[in-house]
Write a protein that binds this DNA or RNA. Structure first.
Length: 325
DNA sequence: AAGTCGGGGTC
DNA sequence: GACCCAGACTT
C-alpha cells in the first residue's frame, strides 16, 4: 500500500461523518442507503433512509407493500423511478445476490450502486465511482475529462490490498464530499495534498459539464367534482405519482372537450427541475365527475403547488380542505 | 454520447 | 438566478 493510501485511510478513520448507514453491513440497508444517495444530498438521504427503513425494515416487507405505499414514503425525495425499481427488485429476488455482476442486473442498480453494495455489504474488491470519486481522482491525477471506463479502471487499480474495499470506497467518497469540494476545495487540510497533481488548479479537474435549463410551458387542469379533484396516475415525468392533468397549452381545447368543461385561469406556478424550468398555467373548472381527496395520494412537489394555488379559488366550502395550511 | 428524470441546499 | 448532488436508464 502506498503512502497516500495510508494517509487517506488514516484521515477517514478520524474524520468520517457519523451517518446513519455508517458501518452498516446488512445488504438491504446498504442498498436502500445507496439508492437514496443517487443524485441526492447526504442530509436529505439520511432523512428518507430512516423513514424508509422504519416502514420497510426488510426486503420482504418491501415486497409485501404496494407500489403506492412505497411511493408515498418516497414522496418528496425525487427521481421516483428509484422507488419503483426498488419495489420491483424486492419482488424479484428473495435476497440480494452477493456479487457485483449479479447486483448489476437488478433494476435501478447501475455501475456505481452495484459496486457500492458489493463492496460495502459483501466485501467484494470492486471500485465504486460516484461524482465524488470522479472529482477526487481527476484532481489527484490532473485529468480534465476522463472517460467513464478509464476512470473505473483507474479506481479499480487503486484498490489497496488487505483493506476492506467498502471502507476504501467510502473513504474516497468522504474525502470528495467534505474536503475535495467542487468549489473551493480545502486543499490546505487535505490528507492527500502532498500527493495531488491537480491542487494548483483544482477548478480544472474535472472540467465542468455544461447544462442548460430550457423553459417549458404547461397547463394544469384542476377539475373539481362532487367528491374532490380529478387525479390521474402520471406517466413519464413524475411517473407513478398522482396529479391533475398536465399538458402542453395546445392540448387545452381537446382536454376541455374530453371532460366537457370550460376552464378559467386561476394563476401561474413555476417549478424548477434540473434541466427544465416549468411555467405552469393553472386552470380550473367545476366538473360533473366525482374526483377525490388529492392529499391522500403521493404527489410531486409541482402538484402540491398547483393545488395550493387552485383549491382556495375553486373549492366549495369543505369539499376539499387544504391540509393545515 | 446525449437527454431524461426531482428536489433541495448553497452561493 | 446558477450549480451541484454517494446515478440509472433510454435512445
Amino acid at each position: 500500500m502506498e503512502a497516500w493510501q495510508k494517509a487517506l485511510l488514516a484521515w477517514y478513520r478520524e474524520n468520517a461523518r457519523p451517518l446513519p448507514w455508517r458501518g452498516e453491513k446488512d445488504p438491504y440497508r446498504v442498498l436502500v442507503s445507496e439508492v437514496l444517495l443517487q443524485q441526492t444530498r447526504v442530509e436529505q438521504a439520511a432523512l428518507y433512509y430512516r423513514r424508509f427503513l422504519e416502514r420497510f425494515p426488510t426486503l420482504k416487507a418491501l415486497a409485501a407493500a404496494s407500489l403506492e405505499e412505497v411511493l408515498r414514503v418516497w414522496q418528496g425525495a425525487g427521481y421516483y423511478r428509484r422507488a419503483e425499481h426498488l419495489h420491483r427488485l424486492a419482488r424479484s429476488v428473495e435476497e440480494l445476490p452477493p456479487s457485483f455482476a449479479e447486483l448489476r442486473k437488478l433494476p435501478g442498480l447501475g455501475p456505481y450502486t452495484a459496486a457500492a453494495v458489493a463492496s460495502i455489504a459483501f466485501g467484494e474488491r470492486v471500485a465504486a465511482v460516484d461524482g465524488n470519486v470522479r472529482r477526487v481522482l481527476s484532481r489527484l491525477f490532473a485529468r480534465e475529462s476522463p472517460k467513464e471506463k478509464e476512470l473505473f479502471a483507474l479506481a479499480q487499480g487503486l484498490l489497496p490490498e488487505g483493506v476492506d474495499p467498502g471502507v476504501w470506497n467510502q473513504a474516497l467518497m468522504e474525502l470528495g464530499a467534505t474536503v475535495c469540494l467542487p468549489k473551493r476545495p480545502r486543499c490546505g487540510t487535505c490528507p492527500l495534498g502532498a500527493f495531488c497533481r491537480g491542487k494548483e488548479a483544482p477548478g480544472r479537474y474535472p472540467a465542468p459539464r455544461k447544462r442548460w435549463a430550457k423553459e417549458e410551458r404547461l397547463v394544469a387542469l384542476v377539475l373539481l367534482g362532487r367528491k374532490g379533484v380529478h387525479l390521474e396516475r402520471l406517466e413519464g415525468r413524475f411517473q407513478g405519482l398522482y396529479g391533475v392533468p398536465l399538458f402542453p397549452p395546445e392540448e387545452l381545447p381537446g382536454r376541455e372537450a374530453a371532460f366537457g368543461v370550460r376552464s378559467r385561469p386561476l394563476g401561474e406556478v413555476r417549478h424548477a427541475l434540473t434541466h427544465r424550468r416549468l411555467l405552469v398555467e393553472v386552470r380550473g373548472a367545476l366538473w360533473e365527475g366525482e374526483g377525490e381527496d388529492p392529499w391522500r395520494r403521493p404527489l410531486p412537489k409541482l402538484m402540491e403547488k398547483v393545488l395550493r394555488k387552485a383549491l382556495p379559488l375553486l373549492a366549495h366550502a369543505g369539499v376539499v380542505p387544504l391540509p393545515d395550511a
